[in-house]
């Protein structure tokens, strides 16, 4: 993992999952998998976070919370949908109170399959998310430069 150049901080929210994926997310942090050795920290504050891990699908009540957390996170940010429920609704898709996957509310960058998603898969998803984060960062750096150029042109 020598190519991990950034230690992302993670915020986790349970949309309406069964706990299976949530405890696997927590298991990633504990000695068996131990992502904290790469500086990856599970934070409770959306403004500290780079990566948003969502488990479970969304319902009428959690939709606002997911949106709120996403909006509070600073750019660039990556959303990882953990587990099949977060990806599409999974086994609960037909339930009356389940609207569907997380991508109905916020744009999802990485989908992690599995019911429950294994810690290895979650870690892989976060590493993939790092790539997306770097791309978004690069795009952000370019944008202001391009905007400045356009302004300069207008001035001339």
């Amino acid at each position: 993992m020598s190519y991990v150049t950034k230690s992302p901080w993670i915020i986790h929210y349970d949309g309406s999952s069964c706990n299976g994926c949530d405890i696997e997310v927590l298991a990633c942090l504990t000695p068996m998998y131990d992502v904290e050795r790469f500086g990856i920290i599970n934070t409770g504050n959306p403004k500290h976070a780079d990566i948003f891990l969502v488990t479970g699908s969304v319902n009428e009540q959690s939709i606002k919370v997911v949106k709120q957390i996403y909006d509070q996170m600073p750019e660039p940010k990556v959303v990882v949908a953990v587990g099949i429920c977060a990806s599409s609704g999974g086994i609960f898709k037909e339930c009356y109170n389940v609207l569907g996957g997380i991508d109905m509310v916020v744009p999802v960058d990485v989908y992690v399959p599995g019911c429950a998603a294994r810690p290895e898969a979650i870690i892989d998803g976060v590493v993939k998310g790092l790539g997306v984060l770097a791309e978004k960062r690069a795009a952000m750096d370019k944008k202001p430069a391009a905007a400045a150029k356009a302004e300069a042109k207008e001035g001339a």
């Binding site: 309406s16 706990n19 959690s62």
Partner: peptide
């Protein structure tokens, strides 16, 4: 009410032999 899914209602859509997979997912612990 943040994680209410309403899975008891799935009895109408899943056969009793299949429903065990749904009921298991009431809780992952």
């Amino acid at each position: 009410g943040f994680i209410h899914r309403g899975l008891e209602k799935l009895v109408e859509k899943k056969e009793y032999t299949e429903l065990v997979y749904v009921i298991e997912r009431i809780c992952g612990i």
